Amino acid sequence: LPQLPFWVTSGHTETLEDVAFRSGAALSHLHLVLSREDVHQSLLRARLALKAATVTSKLEGRLAREADIRGAYHLTPPGEARGPDGDLLAFWRASVRVRPNRIGEIADLVGAEFAGDVGV
């Protein structure tokens, strides 16, 4: 797979324009990678969901690692509570399956309480 060009990730971004330009370059690169047929998008979505669950767990004040979250999700027997970290991964796995042009699906996912925050 092509690597992200060095100039996109190098140095500190000082201005808002630098941040916008580098973000656009990164998104363009991501588009190139995702349009390749040899990239398994389901694996990429699962990996991004795990990363998002890990960050969310840390934001909530827990110290769970990726392995802990993955274990809470995959090793819990059916019908038993997965715990907060397993539930976070379940939420993010459902979130990464939603297509961006279907705002209603996102509103259903986050619930009526937060539906206004996603633009519905």
Rank of each mutant, 00 (worst) to 15 (best):
G119L: 08
T13G: 09
D68N: 07
F114Q: 15
K51C: 12
K58C: 10
L4I: 13
S57C: 12
F6A: 13
A72K: 00
D117H: 13
H12F: 14
V8P: 00
V118S: 04
V33I: 15
R82L: 15
L30A: 15
R99S: 05
E66Q: 11
T56H: 07
H74V: 03
S95L: 15
S57K: 01
A49T: 11
V110I: 14
N101G: 01
S35Q: 15
A90I: 04
R36K: 13
R82I: 05
A72M: 03
G119F: 06
R62H: 06
R65L: 07
A25C: 09
P2K: 07
L63I: 12
L34V: 06
D108M: 12
P78I: 03
G116A: 15
L16Q: 15
D68L: 01
L16H: 12
A20K: 14
P84A: 05
G83Q: 13
F91M: 07
L109E: 02
G116K: 10
R65M: 13
V118Y: 08
L44Y: 04
E66V: 06
A72F: 02
P100G: 07
P78D: 13
V98C: 10
D87T: 11
E80S: 14
P5Q: 01
I106E: 01
A53Q: 11
L4C: 06
R65A: 14
V96R: 00
